[in-house]
Nucleic acid binder design. Sequence first.
DNA 1: TTTATTTTGTACCAATTAGTACAAAATGCG
DNA 2: CGCATTTTGTACTAATTGGTACAAAATAAA
Lengths: 193, 193
Amino acid sequence: MAGRPSIFDEEKVLEKARELFWTRGYEATSLDQLLEAMGLGKSSFYHAFGSKKELFEKIMDRFVNDAIHRLAADLPIHPHPIERIREFFRGIASSPSHLHRKGCFMGNTVVELINTEHSLSARAAKKLERLEELFRTYIAAAQRSGELQTKEDPAVLALYLLTVWNGLNITRRVHPNPEALRPLIELQLQFLK
Amino acid sequence: MAGRPSIFDEEKVLEKARELFWTRGYEATSLDQLLEAMGLGKSSFYHAFGSKKELFEKIMDRFVNDAIHRLAADLPIHPHPIERIREFFRGIASSPSHLHRKGCFMGNTVVELINTEHSLSARAAKKLERLEELFRTYIAAAQRSGELQTKEDPAVLALYLLTVWNGLNITRRVHPNPEALRPLIELQLQFLK
DNA sequence: TTTATTTTGTACCAATTAGTACAAAATGCG
DNA sequence: CGCATTTTGTACTAATTGGTACAAAATAAA
């Protein structure tokens, strides 16, 4: 227990790497771009993170998607969880355009890597399943509490919401304007009543 | 008007290339993989297609997404166009698993290249807009003919269907089984009445 | 059969890819 | 201090990336 102290703050350096991976994807993010953004030398990088792939895995596990994370944190303390879910989706419409272009980190990863780096794609898919589970849990609870009247199977409704999320994250790339997205989202949310 | 005859059938060779691009994506498909699959030498390749990027553009323009193409061909001759659209979506559930893994060529392209090869991503986005227009046209017609009772704005309904399509093409990667997809799709189609 | 035209095969290229080897530097502990 | 331990910087690799140069091959028309 001694050794030369490391210069970098792991938290900050991972954040920089995530930003790059999120916007450019896995393959299109080169090691040199990572090193530059993280402010690390090659030696420190490999010593600390092992490989590009391991770094990517670590980032997926740590941050998941910001949005998912925030939602998961908010739901248990919200008096009307379903309303919080509605806000989750409504927020998409008013996002700044650079967020439209980034879309969903996990969705992007599933799409990009499913036939080339399947283990990474599957790992991302599991995060999306966690989001789906989150939806299912709170939908079921809301049906019991009376916040939701619908008799639809919570599992199907949850999968529906996941698909809305996935769909919006492509559609918002095609139509990055709130005027198009807002009525679309309101329509989609009509199943949540 | 003379010259050495070319060995390859352009149609077949483009089909091979599309298959590769569709499953692996743009970046992850190397020139060597293309040459091998197409059965061409480098010289013939560059002479005939210019560059990897131009080839990709040509393929996008020519084939678009198979599914979109077939739908666009069927709709004008179908007695109940909306029912044809429903079948379009129901077909997803019963697709073989290799199609689940491929997803939508244009959706994949929008996602992969939006921050790295923006012109290609935008080109793909335009194809998706064509699909959206197709939906809008036939929804509006069905409202006039009485096949649809809903009073929802055809533009919003069309964007909704595009988003369902986009969403399913990610969700089907996470849940490639018909038992999960079928009730989901039926739920989503309830707006089409 | 020459000639213009087009396609093809081979060799080559500079740049970039992810990743390693290894010694020097910087610490805490005994 | 001196030593074990850890992190860092520099140099180096082997493989792969997309793309070019150029001459040989194969044709149709004159």
